[in-house]
Amino acid sequence: MPTVPDVDPYFAQALRRLRLDRGLSLRGLARLAHRGKSHLHELETGQKQPGVEVAQHLDGVLGANGQLAALVTAAASVRDEADALELVRLVDASDVGIHMLDRVERAVDDLASGYATIPPTELLPQVRRWLARVGRLLEGRCTLEQHRRLLVAGGWLALLRATVHIDLRQPLAADRHLAAASQLADHAGHREIKAWCLETRAWDLLAGGDYRQALELSRQAQAVAPQDSSAFIQATAQEGRAWARMGNRRETRRSLDRVARLASPLRTPDRPEHHYRYDPGKALSYTATTLAWVGDAAAEEYAREVIADLDGAGRPRRSASARLDLGLALLAASKPDEAAAAAEAAIISGRVVASNWWRATEVVAGVERTGIGEANDLRDAYETFRPYR
């Protein structure tokens, strides 16, 4: 783009012409205009650009009927337009290919959907590669909109990577990537990613036994998340789990009722296995698990209903998870032999993945505490099919 000069040569020429037409020397004009001779010389030679008030004053002295002021105003308008065009050019300048952002965002959805089925040791390198690619793209030129989309994609990838690190029992890496995801969410103004970061930390603490802190983080996530978002529903469910772990039946039920109200109007998403899109079909499973944790006898009925629905729909991975829920419910109902059978069927199906393995751990530990003979076979299956050591 051509550079717009800081001074207008036409103004300089017009001022000199008007002065000479009036038969005035520079000294004479300076005396009439009450301006310094050197200053007028700089205006006539284009070394300085006058403001509108100076131009109007010289118009009056020279009887120029506003000619000089009009030139100054026009020059300012040209410069303003040029500045605006330059800003637009910079906003539109980009090294990001036209299809690259779409590829990045598709990869985010693919990886988030694969989380439930791809072993974490295989998923981690894929997430790492795409996160590195987003980092390289952010280092290049991109438009403001592209920049924000890259920040959002990077936030989701960092969050997913933290979740995988939690699965792999790598707490330091998990903490660092949760912090990175939260920072990217802040830069992008993306409240849902921010809320998922809090919910993920709550989930990790819940599995580790820090139920009070898990409860607090679940509530913080709800406060941050948009109320129509998947993160809001998941954080509400996580609150219910925390209450169940603490043995508070009243608050557990209240949380489950809220989840049911939030999930009831939802349709099944296009990709129900997507880790960050709430599938309303999961609500019944969460209810079964949460009630089992709090020792509610209704958990068994919920779990059997979930299994019947999933078996009929031909969804073996979810069916395996539901059988683990049934195992927890049967333990709560003092039926450890049936619990062992349900859990073993789930485990040997090969469909229990890292994201749900905590359920298998719960049932195995509960069955072993009863001392029944089936506990040994269940432990053998658990160790054989465990997705990580």
Rank of each mutant, 00 (worst) to 15 (best):
D6E: 14
P9M: 13
A12D: 00
R17Q: 11
L26K: 09
H34Q: 15
R35W: 05
S38E: 12
E44F: 02
K48E: 05
L58T: 01
G63K: 12
D80Y: 09
A82Y: 12
L87Q: 12
D92H: 15
L101R: 08
A112C: 14
A112R: 15
I118T: 15
R129V: 10
G140F: 11
A153C: 11
A153Y: 06
A162T: 02
H165L: 12
D167Y: 06
L168A: 01
L172I: 14
D175P: 00
H177W: 13
H187P: 00
A188N: 01
K194S: 14
L198V: 05
Y211S: 10
Q213M: 10
A214S: 15
R219D: 07
A235V: 02
Q238F: 02
G240D: 01
G247H: 04
V259K: 03
A260S: 14
P272A: 11
Y276H: 15
Y278R: 11
Y286V: 09
A298G: 13
I307Y: 07
L310A: 13
S321Y: 15
D325G: 00
L326W: 01
A329E: 03
V352F: 01
A354R: 06
A360I: 03
V363Y: 08
G366W: 04
G371S: 08
I372F: 13
E374G: 14
R379I: 00
A381R: 07
R386M: 05
R389L: 11
